[in-house]
Simulated scan of single mutants.
Amino acid sequence: MKERTERKKTTQATSKQSEPPQAQARTILAAPHIVANPQADVPPEGPAAVDWDATLAFRHHLWAHGLGVAEAMDTAQRGMGLDWQGAAELIRRSAAEAKAAGGRIACGAGTDQLATPAPTVADVRAAYEEQLTLVEEAGAQPVLMASRALAATATGPDDYLAVYGGLLRQVTAPVILHWLGPMFDPALEGYWGTRDLDAATETFLQVVAAHPEKVDGVKISLLDADREKALRRRLPPGVRCYTGDDFHYPELIAGDEHGFSDALLGVFDPLAPLVAEAVRALDAEGPAAFRAILDPTVALARHLFEPPTRYYKTGVVLLAWLAGHQRHFTMVGGLQSARSLPHLTRAYELAAELRLFPDPGLAEHRMRLLLELHGVTR
């Protein structure tokens, strides 16, 4: 009964905030998780069974805090339990909710519908085009995601230049280009045609420089603050740098004398209330006030994203359950088992120290249930 009451209170609190405050100094997008349907009779390798009501309610939670939503990205288990059919439905539903709520939304377009083991470069481009069309028709801004198929098929930088150039020439509005490092997805090793990050950066910037009017911004997910700072200084005027660095986001967003990064981050899924507070402080008081709020969150972020980094989603969903945003700790593909119990326990402790749980008693009760399920009593 307590859990039902808590969920009702959360929904009511969110619905009352009809005009969420919007950040002025920075553009902030959170990449949210999906909520699984634990009662669906599907195998771990089968199609994702999604609880659509809970999944979409969490998007409204982010919009209510004034954050934008970056939908169908890796945080939503794209390529790790959520296939293209599920992602397409997620994009359609979330884009419709964004329109109704007046919230900003960007959606990932990739190539994960390809079933052939060794697609050609032409197949990769056609797959991108199919997904871009769906995102644009849904009324969302496309995020051109890094493609496992392109990484496996391209023979060098020229193939990347050809594919991305062709896509940017035909998009109807500026997109976000996403460079996701191999720490998030090992299949993307050597993206942009080389393992040399300096050379890869040159190819990436060449794509942007050739079509600056078609690029709203670039999302850099390499967990290298110095490389991101150097890259953003070389972007054409008007092209944003959306940090994807879940280790150094406070300093990158706060900026320096040479500029700043906007943000598109998975870690902002559990941190949404503090992020909203921090960006309001940035608008009103400046970078020092912003960092005073967000710097203490880095310990939790580094813990959630510790190697193997791609399993950070497990901690994110745990925190959503503990915070009362969903009724269970189950993930599509059985990914709730991807992190150890000590890892999850530490995530709970760090989040509790940050006062991230609206109902600390509920969070403690649920964490105790999880521990007892695994034979731990204390």
Score class of each variant (00 low, 15 high):
Ala363Glu: 00
Val332Gln: 09
Ala351Asp: 05
Pro270Gly: 01
Val207Trp: 06
Ala70Glu: 06
Asp112Cys: 11
Gly238Asp: 00
Ser15Val: 12
Leu56Cys: 06
Glu89Phe: 13
Ala95Tyr: 01
Arg26Val: 15
Val171Ala: 14
Pro358Met: 07
Ala263Lys: 09
Ala87Tyr: 03
Pro182Gly: 08
Gln206Phe: 05
Leu223Phe: 07
Val317Asp: 10
Asp256Tyr: 02
His65Ile: 15
Gln77Ser: 14
Ala87Trp: 01
Glu189Pro: 04
Gln141Asp: 09
Gly139Met: 05
Leu231Asp: 08
Arg339Glu: 01
Ala152His: 12
Glu349Phe: 04
Phe247Ala: 14
Ile220Gly: 12
Thr14Pro: 09
Phe204Thr: 08
Val163Gln: 12
Pro47Phe: 02
Phe260Asn: 01
Asp245Val: 12
His343Asn: 05
Lys313Glu: 10
Pro360Arg: 15
Ala25Pro: 01
Pro20Val: 00
Gly217Phe: 04
Thr120Ala: 08
Pro307Ala: 15
Ala278Pro: 07
Gln206Arg: 13
Ala118Gln: 07
Ala173Asp: 10
Ala149Trp: 11
Glu19Tyr: 14
Arg291Leu: 05
Arg234Lys: 13
Glu19Phe: 12
Leu150Val: 01
Asp283Tyr: 06
Pro47Gln: 02
Gly266Asp: 02
Arg169Ile: 15
Ile220Thr: 13
Val208Tyr: 07
Thr111Leu: 08
Gln336Arg: 09
Glu130Ile: 10
Ser147Ile: 10
Glu19Lys: 14
Leu356Lys: 11
Ala118Pro: 04
Ala323Leu: 09
Gln141Glu: 10
Val298Asn: 06
Asp123Ile: 01
Ala299Leu: 15
Gln170Lys: 08
